[in-house]
């Protein structure tokens, strides 16, 4: 597989030619100085998948010291064969951009601003809200006296952005709480 991905290397034979030109007395210093380094040299390659249109183009992430330095298409993946569209090609900016959310945020009723919170506090608060609503509103029997165990006043919507494993958990959690308002992008 490694060989496959590297087949495109044959597009150039720069090293050999360099030698001959240098022997001819051509000074290549300015050209060599121009491109002395390659930013992905020595980077770890990690296979990922473009998070958009469901064609599933594979992307290689180049990682140095735990930081993403570049991304490009995975030439071995038989569907995209290294190619990417505008969105797929933008993974570096997408991951790095300054707009990313980095902390749990909370907006109190009537407040005009967000407050940063810890995960612990946030999950505790949410669990508290969920339990209160569920304990109050869970419908055990319908009008006909049939057991229905459903919670109509709480919902879970999203997301096709989640992995399969996360979807399985979301479904299980929603049903365990009795949630029936369950929906996501498949319906839009």
């Amino acid at each position: 597989m490694e060989v496959n991905r590297r087949q495109f290397i044959k597009v150039t034979g720069a090293g050999v030619a360099c030698l001959s030109l240098t022997q001819l007395g051509v000074d290549l210093t300015p050209v060599q100085a121009y491109t002395s380094s390659l930013k992905i040299e020595g980077a770890k390659e990690v296979f990922s998948i473009c998070p958009f249109c469901s064609v599933s183009c594979h992307i290689i992430s180049h990682v140095k010291d735990g930081k993403l330095v570049s991304t490009e298409g995975d030439p071995d993946y038989p569907i995209n064969e290294g190619a990417l569209c505008a969105k797929g090609a933008s993974m570096l900016s997408m991951t790095r951009n300054e707009h990313r959310l980095t902390k749990p945020l909370y907006r109190a009723p009537g407040s005009t601003q967000w407050e940063e919170k810890s995960w612990q506090w946030t999950l505790d608060q949410i669990a508290d809200r969920v339990k209160k609503v569920r304990d109050k509103d869970l419908i055990l029997k319908n009008d006909k006296g049939q057991a229905v165990n459903r919670l109509e006043s709480m919902f879970f919507i999203g997301t096709s952005h989640a992995d399969n494993e996360e979807c399985a958990i979301a479904h299980q959690l929603a049903r365990s709480l009795g949630i029936v308002h369950l929906d996501h992008q498949a319906r839009t």
Binding site: R129, V130, V133, E152, F156, I157, G158, T159, H161
Partner: peptide, 11 residues
């Protein structure tokens, strides 16, 4: 007003 709260993930 028939719904009190819920989750909107990645949507």
């Amino acid at each position: 007003d028939q719904v009190r709260g819920g989750f909107i993930f990645g949507l």
